[in-house]
Design a protein around this nucleic acid. Structure first.
Lengths: 187, 187
DNA sequence: TAAGTCATGTAAAAAGTTACATGATTCT
DNA sequence: AGAATCATGTAACTTTTTACATGACTTA
């Protein structure tokens, strides 16, 4: 089973969702930890259905197109628990901007600075967004955040990862842009 | 052109390499910013050759198998500069462990703690390695590190990214493991 | 003698992205 | 009137990983 399958099961373990909802969740909800296109999700749901790890229910809607609501089955929950306990292979970080840093010495100074300033801005925005969500959670769900058995705590945990990741990224971009900008002119 | 093509060109811009060397570099050298399997690299080098962005030279060796030494061409350098100046789309972070954090509330407490402690250890090791390399560079190449036009500075910059990434990762793993471990027993 | 390094490739499978395709409703 | 949202799917393509394949030399 692919990691996407577990991403879907993990989301369905909290509440039933349609394929469309799942795509939205994996994209926007809390920190986006395993984004996938809908064209990837629909076939995967079909596979999960064949394996009886999820069930479907047709939901008629008047104002909007009908949808299929998928729910996790006991077998699906068992599969999720098995995956959770299994060892996880760390992923290598694959970031095109880091690669550009590796090649930056060849580039045009102003263009390099602009590139890193732009990403500093972008990640700063994401950081601000995550921080706002975290602040809201801390106010609203105080109790749940001290209970690791609650899905809310789990969401908060992924959010914290997003926050520290973005914070670190912003700092690195700024450091690099400052270095390139501040050093004496080319000889 | 794929990002891998630019990863290869960026490495060849520093010095000629064989396919084998490139695979090693992308894996081990400084922080691994764009790892690729050799089975991916060899065909890509052939494509670069067809586009005249790199050139080859056969190098006979007595003690080891012969190798092909690839070098970047002026056209290759131009392509690299173009790519450097082009906007970079930020990648979404795709980390299976973050996904497991999202699902952690369903798991076995001891298994979850063990999982995150294990990754804390693993990333702490990487961090220590990167920090050692950085310390060595700071001693050895003082001057080059204040000159953004030197490839050494660029290597140092990617290394700094690796260091702050790993440091952040370690802290998050520890925080999560502490939370799960320290909270009152299941109700 | 077994494992590890150096060296280059092909083939197949899996994972992920982009484009194609449709259609109703709601908001600007 | 046009864009955005909701909703589901298929097809094609690109990217990435894993397995297959070979072979010499070196080190434990």
């Amino acid at each position: 089973m692919s990691t996407l399958a577990f991403a879907l099961l993990a989301t369905l373990a909290r509440a039933p969702h349609s394929g469309y909802d799942l795509a939205q969740r994996l994209k926007h909800d809390v920190a986006p930890f395993w984004h996938a296109a809908h064209s990837h999700i629909y076939p995967e749901l079909t596979r999960l259905l064949e394996q009886h790890l999820v069930s479907v229910e047709h939901v008629a809607q008047d104002d909007r197109p009908d949808k299929k609501r998928y729910a996790i089955t006991p077998a699906g929950r068992a599969a999720l628990r098995g995956w959770l306990a299994a060892p996880t292979r760390p992923r290598v970080l694959r970031d095109e901007l880091v690669l550009k840093a590796y090649a930056a010495w060849m580039g045009d100074r102003a263009a390099v600075v602009a590139q890193f300033r732009e990403h500093e801005r972008l990640h700063r925005e994401r950081l601000a967004h995550y921080e706002a969500v975290a602040a809201r959670m801390e106010q609203q769900y105080q109790h749940a955040l001290t209970n690791w058995r609650s899905p809310t705590f789990a969401s908060y945990a992924t959010l914290r990862r997003g926050i520290s990741f973005e914070r670190e990224y912003v700092a690195w971009c700024r450091w690099l842009a400052d270095q390139v900008e501040g050093q004496p002119a080319d000889v």
